[in-house]
Amino acid sequence: MSPHRLAAIDPSDRTTALVLRIGAAALVIGLLAFGLLYYTDQHVASVPSILERQIALTEAAVRKSPNDLQVRTQLGEVYEQAARHDDAVVQFDQVLKVAPNSKDALIGKGFALMTKGDLDKAVVPFTTIVSATRKGEFAGADSQLGAAYYYLGVIAVKQKKPDVALSQLGHALKIEPTDSDAMYQVGLAQLQKGVPVAAIATFRNALRFVPTGWCEPYQQMQAAYTSLKQPEMATYASAMAGFCGGRVNEATTSLTTLTAGPAAADAMLGLGLIAETTHDTKAAAAWYQKALAKEPKNVAATSALAALGVKPAAHPGTAKKK
């Protein structure tokens, strides 16, 4: 700056400049101070999650007792929970080196490989379990053998091998006849095989054991009914999937419109279920009675009424002849 220009700044300008400089400095310092205070005051130190704590504890246990197969299997399982599939496989392999027929380690390894997406390799440990135990004295009640069959079925479904899947899942269901997950997989295999009517019956069977909070069977039923060109039934399945997904009002409206057509009995059962989940047992019983009036031999309606402790109303079609 030239002396000429400096001389041109009068005293009030100098005061303004001084205040401006002090103000700017105070603003910067104040902002920094506030930021520091806010950060230190509000900062929350992160702590290890439950799983991280469990991993740390189990790793420590393995370090303490490296030859303890149970602890090493547990480590594989917690690694798998943390989606550390490769680490889990390493631990299960360590166990299998010493105990090649350890079903816990074989299931753990197979599951880790399956979850990782290595389906061909995952088949091996499950098949090892089946080969070793299928002819055993307690094979019919061996839940780990059942699990091996189930996962072999799941892998076959993923690999689009429905015949293999149906065979493996059939074995699984012989051991656990009420396994709704296995039933669902059977339904998927039946859809892949091109028998949607059978698939629908299987999905319905699975839903008998888990009637609420499980959306996938309803979604698959919707697709199956659509392929069978049964729009009312597809709408019913869609409404039930909506109910399962929390869209209760939408489902209620949709089901109510179906109470006069070919999907009437199912829609009434669905409305009863919705009423039941809202603890309106009176309305639920009324819907089940209506469904029973529509289809006097409807087992689902009879079971639902029995579960509510309500006696089915007598209908002309069900009255005994004297």
Binding site: M1, S2, H4, R5, A7, A8, D10
Partner: peptide, 8 residues
Amino acid sequence: PPATVPPV
């Protein structure tokens, strides 16, 4: 340019 700056 400095030379052209007016005094105020």
